[in-house]
Every structure is written in C-alpha cells, then in structure tokens.
Amino acid sequence: MDDPDGPTSSPEAPDANRADDDEDDSNGYITRRRLLLAAAGGVGLLGGGGFYVAQSLSGDFGGYEAPATQPMVTTRGRLDAADPTERVGSWDFDEADEVVLYVHGLNADAESARDQAYTARLGLAAAGATAEADGPPVVGYSWTSNVDWGPAKQNADANAAPLADWVAAWADDDGRPLHLFAHSLGARVTGAALRRLADRGQTDALASVSLFGGAIPNDSVGTDGRYGSAIAAVDAPVYNFHSRNDRVLGWVYRLSDGTRAVGHGGLAGSANAPAGYEDVDVTDLVADHYSYIEPEEGCLPRAVGRIGIE
C-alpha cells in the first residue's frame, strides 16, 4: 500500500469482468480522505504515534528518475483491449541471462511506476546481484493504481489475467528466468496472477516470486488462504520480505481493511505456510514502506542471496 495522500486521478471503471471471483470490493469503498481521517483518529489516542504515521505517509522511493528507455509493460487504459499489455521503453537486453519483473503498488502513475522499476534495478546493482554495472534488467509492470483504495483493489484483481498471460508468453517465447518482484498492493496483483497460472497448469513460468511490504491479509498466503494453493503450486520459491517498521501497513492498512498485512509481520500465526513459501524478516534493514528496494537503504542485499539472481 503506497502513499494514500498522493495525487489522484479518475479510476478505471470496475466492471463484473474485472473482479476476482471470490472477493468483491465493490461495496464500502474507502477513499484516501476517509482512510487518513481514520488513521488520524486512531493515532490521536496514542499520542506520539501520530507523528510516526505522518512521517511514514510522506515517504518516497529515493527520488531516482528513470530514463525514457526504462522497459515497461503497461495495461493502463487497455484492460478492455484484445491485447491489454503494451511494451514501452527500450527492450535491448538480449545479452542478459535473467530478467526481473517489478509490479508496483498503490498510487503510482505511469511516471512513478517507471521510476520505481528503475530504482529496483539500481538497488539490485548496489546489492551485487550481477557483474553488470547497471544491474540485471528490470521490466516494470504498470497498472492503474493511482485511484482510491477500493477501486485500486478491483484494478489489482483485474490485472490478474493480463499479468499471467504476459508471464506465460515470456516463458514460451523468451524462456530466460523471470523473477517477479511485487511491492505493496502489487502483491495482490501477483497473488491473483499466480492463481490464474495455477488454474492453467502453467506453474513453471517463474524463477522466483518476492513480495516486499505486501498489502494483502496475513492469512491470505496460508495453505487455506486466498493465495495459498497457488503459492504451493508454483514451481518456484515465494519469499515474503516484511518489516515491522512499515507503519503504512502497521497503521493505515490495518485501519482501512481491519486486518494485518503480510508485509508487516509475516504469515498469520494461526495459518500454515504452503510449500515453497518463506517469510523473511527485514525489520533490521527496512525503515519504512518505501525503502524495500532502494539502493543502500532496503533489503535487496538479503533478498538477492535467497532469490539466487546472478
């Protein structure tokens, strides 16, 4: 869940074909204004806690600006098209041995989505993920998330099929190992896409899946949860990098959705971990919701060792 107080735009109108089949967020939308009022009311009772929340909500991803060549896959304004994904930027990385696909979270416009993907590449380079000075290629997956919370969750579910289709096509047409990174609400896009891949029997399309500050319920990744069976089915490790310093998840997400986020404290204590799933506590490395992928600031050095990016 990214900054709930950033710039807004008109949402892509959700329709019945876009929502995932067993969860409907069409009722009880929570706008940013209501979300922030709820947060302010809740933390007001806790005195100094309000300062930390306000500080967290004003964070950014380090201020890195991507070049126009940053490769992106976008579904913005295209979900009703015959082919909802479009490639933009430069895709001149034929010499790379493996590729990372980065799925952003809430409140990212097209420019922010591009900048975040570029930041992830810089973070991987700083973490020593490859001998290349610029790090391994990172392709950004850009979707309409710069809307209010309820519509954003519907748009996340609506991107399940396009993301699954693109990943499967990459496996068939290119074949190089593809590591999927998902930040914040991007974890919902990813979980829904994994379900699609599992339903189709395309469980070998990814080399790894990593959630960073995942804004999904902490029981949804358990064996009996919404995404548990898909996580168990995927033929790749699934890592959940979580931080208790992430106050956007610890405060705002909990107030808005009435549950704990997997990106804050990991899998719910009452749930069982599916095969292939691993919680990785990065509280000692990650100071806020925005720094998971930042060079020198985030947890990518620890992530690289587990993921096996070379």
Rank of each mutant, 00 (worst) to 15 (best):
T130P: 01
H183K: 11
A39K: 07
G191M: 06
G201D: 10
D80W: 06
L57A: 05
A193M: 00
S256M: 09
G105S: 13
A82P: 04
S90L: 12
G276Y: 02
V43C: 13
P7A: 13
P274R: 01
A160D: 11
G77D: 04
A187L: 02
V88G: 06
A198Q: 07
E86M: 05
R200I: 06
G276R: 06
Q116N: 15
S291W: 14
R302N: 14
H242C: 10
A68F: 11
L197D: 03
A120E: 15
D80V: 02
A232G: 10
S229V: 08
V252S: 04
E98F: 05
L57F: 06
E111H: 13
L211I: 09
S26I: 01
D257A: 14
V99A: 04
V189C: 01
A156D: 06
E95A: 12
A16L: 14
H289L: 00
I307G: 01
A198Y: 03
Y290T: 15
Y292M: 10
M72I: 00
G140N: 01
G150Q: 05
Q154S: 08
S220V: 07
G135I: 04
P295V: 08
A192P: 04
L45D: 13
G201W: 10
S9K: 11
N17T: 07
E294M: 14
D109M: 08
P11M: 04
G214M: 01
Y102W: 13
V53D: 11
A40C: 12
G308D: 05
D199A: 12
S243D: 07
A198T: 06
A187G: 02
Q70C: 00
A108E: 15
A120W: 15
T31I: 09
A113I: 07
A268K: 00
G49C: 10
P4A: 08
R78P: 05
P14Y: 03
D235N: 14
L101N: 08
R260E: 13
R306I: 10
S220G: 12
R226K: 10
D22R: 13
E296Q: 12
R32Q: 11
W166T: 03
L185F: 12
N155M: 10
A275Y: 14
A66S: 03
T85K: 09
S256K: 04
Y102Q: 08
F212V: 00
A108W: 10
E278K: 05
T259A: 07
T119Y: 01
E296K: 07
E297V: 04
A81E: 07
W149P: 06
G263Y: 02
C299A: 12
T119F: 03
R302Y: 14
